[in-house]
Design a protein around this nucleic acid. Structure first.
Lengths: 109, 109
DNA sequence: TGACCACATAATCAATTGCTTATATTATTA
DNA sequence: TAATAATATAAGCAATTGATTATGTGGTCA
């Protein structure tokens, strides 16, 4: 029965609107923290803490590039998370909108 | 983005050890409340309230039979829940143990 | 070196959650 | 009809959670 308990714990990570959206975004492409902050219209510490939880669980991985830390999906090790992600609707639109903003906002050049 | 929010809300239902275990049990066969209480070794109100949440979300359905209310799975309408359930380990053992106990406990005759 | 930028961590707080105890409600049966 | 059994609902509470504000850390560049 321990397996189920552990599974429930992992499911909690995606049972949150912010984290589930972050994963949906990262499915499109890797993103730095400030990009996610801008898309989700929230504070930077908020996103950072959600990313930390996802990182600890091994659902995302990070890569520092200069000042920026880029996060990307790494859910292949957790099959049931991957299965759920297959049903999460695409939000490509949000990322495209971000690109347009960035021209004027000079965010993450 | 509303779809994702709704999806996160539904995922919360299975992101709980008690509810996920209940669903795993009901996958084996329908069960009345007192049987679930005995297997999970908790209180009756506790199980009743979890079942209510699952019922509201349409993940289980109930059927009264005399004094007993039997609950069964009805997750076919929610594909991603069904997908996750495919990865939940079986706990047939718990149900078999219950049957043995019931001979001496005369629970749910 | 020092100012600045992106990000992480810490501290705090309100809201939610899961459980318990107490109290209905509904059905059976003597 | 009264007693009992199974279940539901309500109230209360401790623990967890998601967010905010404040502060620390590491990299870049003039």
């Amino acid at each position: 029965m321990d397996d189920i308990v552990e599974m429930a714990e992992t499911l909690k990570l995606i049972a949150d609107r912010t984290r589930l959206t972050i994963l949906a975004l990262l499915r499109e492409r890797e993103l730095c923290v400030c990009e996610i902050v801008e898309i989700l219209e929230t504070t930077q510490p908020n996103i950072s803490q959600h990313l930390r939880k996802l990182k600890i669980a091994g659902l995302v991985s990070e890569a520092r590039r200069g000042q920026w830390v880029y996060y990307s999906l790494s859910i292949t090790k957790v099959p049931y998370i991957q299965a759920v992600m297959g049903y999460v609707p695409s939000i490509k639109g949000s990322i495209n909108a971000l690109n347009l903003d960035c021209i004027t906002n000079d965010c993450c050049e």
